[in-house]
Lab assay of single mutants.
Amino acid sequence: MALNTPQITPTKKITVRAIGEELPRGDYQRCPQCDMLFSLPEINSHQSAYCPRCQAKIRDGRDWSLTRLAAMAFTMLLLMPFAWGEPLLHIWLLGIRIDANVMQGIWQMTKQGDAITGSMVFFCVIGAPLILVTSIAYLWFGNRLGMNLRPVLLMLERLKEWVMLDIYLVGIGVASIKVQDYAHIQAGVGLFSFVALVILTTVTLSHLNVEELWERFYPQRPATRRDEKLRVCLGCHFTGYPDQRGRCPRCHIPLRLRRRHSLQKCWAALLASIVLLLPANLLPISIIYLNGGRQEDTILSGIMSLASSNIAVAGIVFIASILVPFTKVIVMFTLLLSIHFKCQQGLRTRILLLRMVTWIGRWSMLDLFVISLTMSLINRDQILAFTMGPAAFYFGAAVILTILAVEWLDSRLLWDAHESGNARFDD
């Protein structure tokens, strides 16, 4: 018995066209964080690309023209004298008006014999932002004059995390709450300039795509075929072959399989920071003279006294001054041990922890910024005066060393310790 099946006739004509040209192939790229070699397709503007294995951002879609970056830099340069030299806060102490600005706080630190601690604050609040705007201006002028731009481009990517104007702005709020127990506070004209400078700096850093600047100024022929001998440069993120001198053909720094002496430098910085954190938390970090009496505060006791007036601000200072430094030390110690013992479990967790400490590390400088600003506000000789204690130097040095330890660690070593050939990683 035959089955009668109805015929289905399409209502619209289906047209099949042959592909007349070869589909576009992607360029081969190595991930600078996990060293995976993959094919990167062509990316349009405002599109980002991520590593298929570790999800690290390979290409950032946010990109401004150099002219727009230069305009932002010149605007920031105009704001800087007002943000640093004009009063941020006014207080009335014992019937006398006192003005506080950024430069005055750094000068008070240096004047009291601790120039190293003052230079830490100076670099993060004044030096690094000033280098940022002058570097962008150098790129703008240098591109037109045919100057060598490689050193500036190499420095810009590392400079971003040292620009800490946003953290200093939080420190202004913390210092205001600490001082309000002794005097009446009012915002100064410099505060508005400083807030504007923070906003412009944040926007500029978020749109400063150094890798795209490398592509514009020093374009290189990408690798179009897969080759395990391809290496990625950690300076400019170019994937290719080393030249005859073993250097990256684009930025001219040595092109090595792994960062040289990464573990040794990381261990040295980490152990030194552990040693410095002990006096930083045991010795007094601030000293207040009130009517001839002397009151010393460690980091913890200062947080407890701050909690009596504002528990939320005390929580912020606790996280930045105690929780973050010790968390960074514990995480980095764990990561280094996992590399030495070739741990194969929990790779995803370790990668996330490394990215976390990379982002939060700079916030530990908050305590030094609060001390710097408070020193310029309260300084009335023996009637009422505020000065920093010996722990300030140890704390600042420990924070900087932990930042350097994270920067010096080559994250690809975590993958080397893991089993080879993993296309995915999980716990």
Rank of each mutant, 00 (worst) to 15 (best):
residue 3 L to E: 11
residue 3 L to M: 08
residue 5 T to K: 10
residue 7 Q to T: 10
residue 8 I to N: 10
residue 14 I to F: 10
residue 19 I to S: 10
residue 22 E to C: 08
residue 22 E to Y: 12
residue 25 R to Q: 11
residue 35 D to V: 02
residue 37 L to T: 13
residue 37 L to V: 12
residue 38 F to L: 07
residue 39 S to I: 15
residue 43 I to A: 09
residue 51 C to I: 00
residue 53 R to N: 13
residue 54 C to F: 00
residue 55 Q to M: 10
residue 63 D to L: 15
residue 67 T to Q: 07
residue 71 A to G: 03
residue 71 A to R: 01
residue 73 A to C: 11
residue 74 F to A: 13
residue 75 T to V: 15
residue 77 L to G: 13
residue 78 L to Q: 03
residue 79 L to A: 05
residue 83 A to Y: 04
residue 86 E to P: 05
residue 86 E to C: 06
residue 90 H to T: 11
residue 91 I to T: 06
residue 99 D to C: 12
residue 102 V to Q: 14
residue 104 Q to S: 15
residue 111 K to S: 05
residue 112 Q to M: 07
residue 113 G to S: 10
residue 114 D to P: 04
residue 122 F to W: 04
residue 125 V to A: 09
residue 125 V to S: 09
residue 133 V to L: 14
residue 136 I to T: 12
residue 137 A to Q: 07
residue 141 F to I: 15
residue 144 R to H: 10
residue 145 L to C: 11
residue 149 L to S: 14
residue 151 P to C: 03
residue 153 L to G: 08
residue 155 M to F: 02
residue 156 L to E: 05
residue 158 R to H: 15
residue 162 W to A: 01
residue 163 V to I: 12
residue 164 M to Y: 05
residue 164 M to R: 06
residue 166 D to G: 15
residue 167 I to F: 04
residue 170 V to C: 14
residue 170 V to Q: 02
residue 171 G to C: 09
residue 172 I to N: 06
residue 175 A to T: 12
residue 175 A to V: 04
residue 178 K to I: 01
residue 180 Q to W: 11
residue 185 I to Y: 08
residue 186 Q to N: 10
residue 192 F to A: 13
residue 195 V to G: 13
residue 196 A to P: 04
residue 198 V to Y: 15
residue 202 T to I: 14
residue 204 T to M: 10
residue 205 L to E: 15
residue 206 S to Q: 15
residue 207 H to P: 15
residue 209 N to D: 05
residue 222 P to V: 09
residue 232 V to N: 11
residue 236 C to Q: 00
residue 236 C to S: 01
residue 236 C to N: 00
residue 239 T to H: 03
residue 241 Y to E: 05
residue 242 P to C: 07
residue 247 R to Q: 13
residue 247 R to C: 09
residue 249 P to H: 07
residue 249 P to D: 05
residue 252 H to A: 03
residue 253 I to V: 14
residue 258 R to W: 03
residue 259 R to Q: 09
residue 261 H to F: 05
residue 262 S to N: 03
residue 263 L to N: 05
residue 263 L to Q: 08
residue 270 L to P: 03
residue 271 L to K: 06
residue 274 I to D: 09
residue 274 I to Y: 06
residue 282 L to C: 09
residue 283 L to Y: 06
residue 285 I to T: 04
residue 285 I to Q: 01
residue 289 Y to L: 02
residue 289 Y to W: 11
residue 291 N to W: 15
residue 292 G to M: 13
residue 293 G to H: 05
residue 294 R to M: 02
residue 295 Q to W: 11
residue 296 E to I: 15
residue 298 T to I: 07
residue 300 L to Y: 13
residue 300 L to P: 02
residue 305 S to A: 11
residue 310 N to E: 15
residue 313 V to W: 07
residue 314 A to D: 00
residue 318 F to T: 04
residue 318 F to K: 04
residue 323 L to V: 12
residue 324 V to S: 10
residue 326 F to H: 06
residue 327 T to P: 01
residue 330 I to H: 11
residue 335 L to Y: 05
residue 335 L to Q: 08
residue 340 H to I: 05
residue 343 C to H: 15
residue 346 G to M: 13
residue 349 T to P: 13
residue 350 R to F: 14
residue 354 L to P: 12
residue 359 W to A: 11
residue 361 G to P: 01
residue 361 G to A: 08
residue 363 W to N: 03
residue 368 L to I: 09
residue 378 I to S: 00
residue 378 I to P: 00
residue 379 N to W: 02
residue 387 T to A: 05
residue 387 T to V: 12
residue 387 T to W: 08
residue 391 A to W: 01
residue 394 Y to C: 03
residue 397 A to L: 03
residue 400 I to E: 02
residue 405 A to S: 09
residue 406 V to T: 08
residue 407 E to I: 12
residue 407 E to H: 09
residue 410 D to K: 00
residue 412 R to Y: 00
residue 414 L to K: 02
residue 416 D to R: 11
residue 418 H to S: 13
residue 420 S to M: 10
residue 423 A to C: 15
residue 426 D to Q: 11
